[in-house]
Each structure stands twice: as structure tokens, then as C-alpha cells.
Amino acid sequence: MKTLLDVRNISKRFGGLHAVENFSFAIEKNTIIGLIGPNGAGKTTAFNLITHFLPRNEGSIFFQEKNLKKKPPYALIRHGIARTFQQIRIFPELTVRENVLLSLSWKYDSWWKSFLLQDESEENATAYKLLSEVHLEKHRDEKAGNLSYGQSKLLEMVRTIATGAELILFDEPAAGVNPPMLNTVKKLIRNLKAQGKTIFIIEHNMPFLMEMAEEIIVMENGKFLCRDVPTKIQKDIRVLEAYLGGS
């Protein structure tokens, strides 16, 4: 299979703390990969480094065989890497529909284009379709700030998908989500896979990840610990020691 993302020896230090150290892995196109590890293992920091929301101290990242160097986060999205956040980030004062419209197209980002052409019927139709997938279409003209926690999470996921990115990073998509909504999340991720997208997920909900992920990468203390299929990871003595504390 073709490698989509190739992370080589990335490191991040906060003062004396090595949040991520010499971390390397690769992700093939059109797979669902999980990232787990005990609290403080450096999972979210790794996400921040991959999406350039944090600058790395060392290492390089290749996406579709291109070196990403120091591109700003918004530029990475245009390259095809999008993400959600552990702490939900939506635009509470914008409507649900506007939240999605915002990441659907870049053609109106410059003020003068936005000023001259304002036909967004195509984008509106796409937004409606995407919102229907997570049952939010009824709320499309409400302020996003009025949504419940789970709904906000779904909205953030939809907004991320709407960027059209090839690689999508979800930071704990199942946390704090009730069972019916969790099924919606699963369906959404399976649809993405069916569309040929690649998904990288941080998650603490093990049954969810066991069901969804094809492979799981385990981190401990900022370092790569191991990588395998979910059934083997579950029984791996190194993983159990990392979570429960080894002797």
C-alpha cells in the first residue's frame, strides 16, 4: 500500500520535559489507525506536531511524499491534513450551517471575491448533506453554542471532514458521547474510509477503537512503544505494563 503520512524522529521538549521523543511511524493510505497510551504519553502533543499547531524541535514529516517543513497549520489543511481537538473547538456565535460553510470552500476567503460573488447554493447543499449524516440538519440555523456536548462534537467532526482533507485526525471522538451518538460517529468514520480517506484516531474508549481501528500505535512517555492489530495490542505485555505500571 502507498504511504500517506511518514513521521520521522519527531521530538518536542517543553523546558526539561520530553513530551514527544524520537517518535516515528508511517500511515498507509485508506486505513484507520488508532493512537493510544496512558495519560501524559504525548498523544495530543504528537497530533499538534503533525498538524503544526506546535513547532517540533526535531524530525521531519512527509505527507504524500512531500516534506511539510514549517508550513502553517491552515496551509496543511489545504494540503490535506485536518484535525479535531480534544477540547471541542466550534464557533459558538456562528450558526451550525455557517460552521460547516466556513471550511467548505476557500474561494471567498479574500474579501473582494466574497464581495463580488456570493452564490453559495452549492456549498449550502453540501453542508446540508454533511449535517444530515450526523442528524444536525434540523439545527442548521441555530447558533452552534446552543448545541449539546455530543452534538458539538459531531459538528466539529463534520466541519473537519468538510475541509475535504485526505488524512483526518480525530482527538478522542468517542469521549463523552452517548451510545446512539457513538453509532453515528462510527458510521461517519466508516463512510470516510469508504470514500478512500485515511483516519488517525486518539482514543481512550478501547472497545470503540478495537472495533474501528485496523492497527494501533502505542505511545509511552513520549516514545513509540509498539504497533500491531487491535487483538494483539490488547494482549501485549508491554502495553499492559504501560497502563497498569510494570515491575
Partner: peptide, 29 residues
């Protein structure tokens, strides 16, 4: 008025709400 209610105006409102989220939506804030 036109500027306020254009997609560019929407982008500005998004930046006011959450600039990091706007970057995550692919915007050069």
C-alpha cells in the same frame, strides 16, 4: 453592510469566536 454579511464577514466572526479553530478550518487568520 454587504461586507458584514458576506462570507468574508463570516470568516471575521469565526476569528473572533475562536482563532485556532479558524486555522483548523484552513483559514489564514
Amino acid at each position: 453592510y454587504k461586507l458584514f454579511h458576506s462570507p468574508f464577514g463570516r470568516l471575521l466572526r469565526a476569528i473572533k469566536d475562536d482563532e485556532i479553530a479558524a486555522q483548523a478550518a484552513g483559514k489564514n487568520t
